[in-house]
């Protein structure tokens, strides 16, 4: 299948400067998706306080399109996992993720959501939500500043704007070979069953870069 011809951002801005408005369907679709990301009201621990601060007057996440934090996952686009995910809470997080309608995105905010953070040796701590849920953006920090969350949201917007509608690089909901339902872990005798989702959690073969 021939790839659709694309214009780079520089070419597009050049054309705009000359007064030619070129709007492809892809650009319009991505603009609509990226500038109206509505997060879910989901805060687990201390990073949730910084997320709330980002939604308040001084930092105002509404300027970026996240006008309202939806209480229902059916109406939300973005899951900001902010705080430590315990193993007891992990199936609930995956269930909420499954209930969100596509297109949906996930931001892992804070050290605990990325890797378990300072508590990763804990008996009830899940070492990173990306073991079960595909994370789009990781925001390190403990907790990250509200501006760091806004920067992460901007990175997510850039990522969405760079997605193409068709072809192998299309997002999850526009492809036919992906499932949007993720298996929910169950409570086992000593750990979650399964302890990770190998299709989501892809640890690189080589160790840290040398």
């Amino acid at each position: 299948m021939n790839p659709m011809p694309t214009i780079t951002d520089e070419e597009r801005s050049e054309l705009r400067r000359h007064g030619i408005l070129l709007t492809s369907v892809e650009e319009l679709y991505n603009w609509g998706r990226s500038h109206s990301v509505w997060p879910l009201q989901f805060g687990l621990a201390c990073c949730a306080i910084e997320m709330i601060a980002a939604s308040m007057a001084r930092f105002d996440i509404a300027r970026f399109g996240s006008e309202v934090f939806r209480p229902s996952p059916r109406q939300a686009d973005l899951l900001i996992v902010s705080g430590t995910v315990t193993k007891k809470m992990a199936p609930q997080v995956v269930r909420l993720w499954n209930q969100m309608a596509e297109p949906k995105y996930c931001i892992a905010m804070g050290a605990c959501a990325i890797s378990g953070g300072p508590f990763k040796r804990g008996y009830n701590v899940l070492k990173g939500i990306d073991r079960f849920v595909p994370v789009d953006i990781y925001i390190p920090g403990c907790p990250p500043r509200p501006e760091a969350l806004l920067h992460g949201l901007m990175e997510l917007q850039k990522k969405i704007s760079g997605q193409s509608i068709s072809g192998p690089e299309a997002p999850r909901h526009l492809r036919h070979d992906t499932s949007c339902e993720y298996p929910v872990p169950e409570f086992g005798d000593h750990d979650l069953v399964p302890p990770k989702n190998p299709e989501v959690w892809k640890v690189p073969e080589s160790p840290p870069k040398d």
Partner: peptide, 11 residues
Amino acid sequence: ILMWDGFKDHP
């Protein structure tokens, strides 16, 4: 109270 009901160990 902290672990789930089916958990078998005492951490």
